[in-house]
């Protein structure tokens, strides 16, 4: 990390583990759960959030001196909404099928608490470069959880990864299916997303005891 000072690189690395937006800060849960039945939807969602959060943090940080604090929520909402409209239009133009899968959840990036949370907690008090790094870092932490959840749900639920059959063909009984393996269709349903995230939290806090909460 010769490019970044130690302080700056922490901005990116912290949210990946010990200060993860989903498992520790409890921000941005809605979309993390709803669209993770397929891996590629998770990846696209993570990239969209990274774009919105990185740029949004820079814009808010540049305007932090001139936003009156009373109306800052509305200003922030307008900035996010504009960026999200760009993402939505790009997805509709270049990945129409995927934008149908993501449906309203692209729009819901506007109210994704990660975005408002980082604007309030970081961008309003820091310079644009540091805010940009913070945005990228937090979006990466968010994306990491999304990709992990999407990976397990798609692998166990439909036996594919990014649409490619990795465990063999369930109809002609090749690969794992020839010895009696079955897909667990339950993984594709929404409740399992919650349970998978619960297990991730469990594993993370077992490894780092400092994160354990009071009951």
């Amino acid at each position: 990390m010769a490019l970044l000072s130690k302080k700056d690189s922490n901005l990116i690395l912290d949210p990946l583990a010990d200060n993860n937006p989903i498992t520790i800060q409890v921000l941005g849960i809605c979309s993390a759960l709803a669209i993770t039945a397929e891996l590629n939807a998770s990846i696209v969602m993570a990239l969209s959030v990274m774009f919105v959060l990185g740029l949004g943090n820079v814009v808010i940080s540049l305007m932090r001196g001139i936003i009156p604090s009373k109306i800052r929520i509305i200003v922030q909402l307008v900035v996010v909404a504009t960026l999200v409209i760009i993402v939505d239009q790009v997805l509709k133009a270049f990945a129409y099928e995927l934008s149908k899968t993501l449906a309203v959840f692209v729009g819901l990036i506007i109210t994704n608490c990660i975005i408002m949370g980082r604007f309030e907690a970081f961008a309003l008090g820091n310079g644009p470069w540091r805010s940009f790094l913070d945005g990228i870092g937090n979006a990466a932490g968010y994306g990491l959880i999304l990709v992990i959840v999407g990976f397990f749900r798609e692998l166990l639920g439909s036996g594919t990864l990014l649409g490619f059959p990795v465990l063999g063909d369930p109809i002609t009984k090749t690969g794992l299916y020839s010895i009696g393996y079955e897909n667990n269709g339950f993984m594709l349903l929404s409740p399992m997303a919650l349970i998978v995230v619960g297990i991730i939290i469990w594993i993370q806090r077992s490894r780092n005891r400092a994160l354990i909460e009071e009951n």
């Binding site: 498992t23 349903l189 409740p191 919650l194 939290i201 594993i203 806090r205 909460e213 009951n215």
Partner: peptide
């Protein structure tokens, strides 16, 4: 509750069970 699950973790899992019920 097992310590690492306290707070957030167990809430996620209970919500998951309730969601299965609501299905």
């Amino acid at each position: 509750v097992p310590p690492p699950l306290r707070g957030l973790g167990i809430t996620f899992i209970i919500t998951g069970l309730m969601a299965i019920g609501f299905m």
